[in-house]
Simulated assay, not measured.
Amino acid sequence: MPVEVSMRKRLRQQLPDAFRLPTDRDPAPQPRHLAAVCGWAAALGLGGMAVALRAFVGLIGAYRAWYAPTVIVIGLIGLTCTIAAFASVHQRRLPFALLGAASVSLVIGWIVTGL
Rank of each mutant, 00 (worst) to 15 (best):
Q14P: 00
H90K: 15
A62H: 14
A36N: 10
P16V: 08
V57A: 11
R12W: 00
V5A: 15
A28R: 13
A28Q: 15
F56R: 08
G100S: 10
A65P: 03
G78V: 03
C81I: 01
I83H: 07
R20Q: 09
C81V: 01
G75M: 04
V5P: 00
H33D: 07
D26N: 02
F19R: 02
A42D: 14
G58K: 00
P27D: 14
L98I: 09
G47P: 04
K9S: 13
V5D: 13
G45D: 13
L44Y: 07
A18I: 12
I72R: 09
Y63G: 05
R54Q: 10
P16Q: 06
L44Q: 07
A84E: 04
W110D: 09
L15R: 06
R32S: 12
R32C: 04
A84N: 01
C81P: 00
G61R: 10
L79M: 15
P2S: 11
P95W: 02
A35V: 02
A35H: 10
G58M: 03
R92E: 09
I111D: 05
R10D: 06
R12T: 02
L115R: 15
R8H: 13
C81S: 12
T70N: 05
G100W: 08
R54I: 00
V112N: 03
A42T: 13
V51M: 07
P2I: 07
G75R: 03
Q13Y: 06
R20C: 07
I72N: 01
A102G: 07
R8W: 03
P22M: 12
L115V: 15
A65T: 11
A35L: 08
G75I: 02
D24V: 14
